[in-house]
C-alpha cells in the first residue's frame, strides 16, 4: 500500500493496461496454441468437423470448470467433481431405467448434485475444514460407494426412453453444431452474469480476496460458501447428464475419473488465482479451449497416447509461467 499510495491516476491507468494483458493472458495462450496448431496441421485442424469435435469433447470439462472457477475464486478447491459426476450420472441412469422419465432422471441428478455440493460446502464453511481435505475425502467416498453399489461396473440406458435420452447430447443443431456446446455456452453466459452482476457473485470474489473483511462487512460468508459448492455440484450434475447421454452409459469406476484435474487446469490456465479473489469465466472458457486444442493436436500429430500427459503437463506449466511473469510485472 505504501508504495502505491502516492501514484497518480495516470500511472494507474498505465498499470491497468498491463493488468488487461494479464487478465486476458488465457486468450493469448489460446491464440498462440491455435496458431501453432494451424501451422502444424492447418487444413485438418481448421476443418469444421475438427473444430466442432474439439468444442463437443470439451464441453463437459468446460461446464465442470465453470463451477470450479467460482470455487477457486473463494480460495477453495473441489477435488471431488470427477467422482461426483460419476455418482450423479449413475443416479440419473438408475432413475431413467426405472421410471423411463428423462425429466425425473435430470431432476434426481441435479438434486443429488445440489446435496453433494451442499455437504462439501457445509463441511468447509461450518466446520472450517480445509476444502482440499474435505474434497479429498468426498472424492474417495463418492467413487468407492458408486463402485460398491455397481460392483465396479456401469449402467446402460435401456427401455423406450433410451434413444430420447441419448439424443440430448448427440443431436446437432442445423446438422453441424453439437448440442453439448450449446449447453456449455449458455451456462457460460449464465455463470458469467452471476459472477459479475449479482451480489452473490461479488461476495464470492470478496470472500476469496479477504474473507475476514467480508465477514466483518456483514456478508454471510458461510451461506455464500455453501451456495458456491452447491452451485458447483449442480453444474457437475448437468455435466453428468450430458456425459451419460453422449455415451448412453455411465461407469462407476472410470466415468469422470481425472476430470477434476482437467477442470482445475482449465481454470488455472484461464488466469484464476489459486489464492482466491481473482478470475473470470471468460478466462476459464479459453483455458478449457486451450486444453482442448492441446489434446486435439496431440491426436492429429499421432503422439503416442502414453506421452500425451507429459506434453500436456509441460504446456500447462509453460502457460502458467508466462502468465505469472506478466502479472508480476503488473504488480
Amino acid at each position: 500500500m505504501t508504495n502505491t499510495q502516492e501514484t497518480s491516476a495516470s500511472e494507474h491507468k498505465h498499470r491497468s493496461l498491463k493488468g488487461l494483458i494479464a487478465d486476458y493472458s488465457a486468450i493469448f495462450a489460446f491464440l498462440i496454441l491455435f496458431i501453432v496448431a494451424v501451422l502444424l496441421k492447418g487444413s485438418i485442424f481448421l476443418s469444421v468437423s475438427n473444430i466442432m469435435n474439439i468444442l463437443m469433447n470439451n464441453s463437459i470439462i468446460g461446464i465442470i470448470a465453470l463451477g470450479m472457477t467460482l470455487v477457486i475464486i473463494t480460495a477453495g478447491i473441489d477435488l471431488a467433481v470427477g467422482s461426483q459426476m460419476a455418482a450423479t450420472g449413475l443416479i440419473a441412469m438408475t432413475i431413467l431405467n426405472a421410471t423411463q422419465s428423462i425429466f425425473l432422471a435430470i431432476v434426481a441428478a441435479v438434486f443429488a448434485g445440489l446435496v453433494f455440493g451442499a455437504i462439501t460446502g457445509g463441511l468447509i464453511s461450518k466446520f472450517g475444514v480445509p476444502a482440499f481435505i474435505v474434497t479429498l475425502g468426498t472424492m474417495q467416498i463418492y467413487r468407492s460407494v458408486s463402485e460398491y453399489y455397481f460392483d465396479g461396473g456401469g449402467i446402460l440406458a435401456t427401455g423406450r426412453s433410451a434413444s430420447a435420452f441419448t439424443a440430448i447430447a448427440n443431436t446437432k443443431l442445423f446438422g453441424i453444431i453439437p448440442m453439448p456446446m450449446i449447453y456449455w455456452f449458455a451456462l457460460c453466459i449464465l455463470i458469467s452474469v452471476i459472477a459479475r452482476r449479482t451480489a452473490f457473485g461479488r461476495h464470492v470474489y470478496a470472500i476469496g480476496s479477504n474473507e475476514r473483511a467480508s465477514f466483518l462487512s456483514t456478508i454471510n460468508v458461510n451461506r455464500v460458501l455453501l451456495a458456491v459448492y452447491a452451485l458447483s455440484g449442480v453444474l457437475v450434475a448437468l455435466a453428468s447428464i450430458i456425459e451419460a447421454s453422449r455415451l448412453g452409459s455411465m461407469n462407476s469406476a472410470s466415468s469422470g475419473s481425472g476430470y477434476e484435474m482437467d477442470a482445475i487446469a482449465a481454470v488455472v490456465i484461464g488466469g484464476t488465482s489459486m489464492a482466491g479473489g481473482r478470475g473470470t469465466i471468460l478466462g476459464t472458457v479459453f483455458g478449457t479451449l486451450t486444453l482442448g486444442i492441446i489434446n486435439n493436436l496431440m491426436n492429429l500429430l499421432g503422439v503416442p497416447s502414453f506421452l500425451v500427459g507429459a506434453i500436456k503437463g509441460i504446456i500447462i506449466i509453460g502457460a502458467l509461467l508466462i502468465q505469472r511473469s506478466v502479472s508480476k510485472e503488473e504488480s
Binding site: Y205, A206, N210, A213, L216, S217, T218
Partner: peptide, 18 residues
C-alpha cells in the same frame, strides 16, 4: 488492511459491499 480492505474489488464495490 486485515479487516477492512478487499484488495481485489474496486473502490465502489468495497464501499457498497454490505
Amino acid at each position: 488492511k486485515e479487516n477492512g480492505i478487499v484488495p481485489d474489488l474496486n473502490i465502489e464495490e468495497n464501499m457498497a459491499l454490505p
